[in-house]
């Protein structure tokens, strides 16, 4: 069972949150200009990292805000949380 730090509400139980998968996927600005391969890649292909992973969560049963987290997908330890629009600890700009 995870205990997740909402950037606004602080530590809350996992059951209050919904998961949003891989973070920092940027929607293509002009989808109609993409090849089928690039569009399929954007829609379906995912990093699915084993280890340190940047991902999205939403505090659904709390403040209802989306935010990002860096979590280890094997130990499940959450290293950091940061708001949408903030830089990830690894410097990936949103």
């Amino acid at each position: 069972m995870l205990s997740i730090d909402c950037p606004w509400c602080g530590s809350r139980d996992q059951s209050e949150f919904s998961y949003g998968g891989e973070a920092h996927i940027v929607r293509p600005k002009e989808p109609e200009k993409l090849s089928d391969e690039d569009w399929g890649d954007y829609l379906f292909n995912r990093k699915n990292t084993k280890g340190r992973f940047e991902e999205q969560w939403c505090h659904t049963a709390g403040c209802r805000r989306w935010f990002n987290a860096v979590r280890d997908s094997q130990s499940y330890k959450i290293e950091a949380v940061y708001k949408i629009g903030e830089q990830s600890p690894d410097g990936i700009p949103e």
Partner: peptide, 13 residues
């Protein structure tokens, strides 16, 4: 579990 996990264990809820 909704999240990505390689831990071969899941949540109590």
């Amino acid at each position: 579990d909704s999240y990505i996990g390689y831990g071969q264990r899941g949540s109590y809820s």
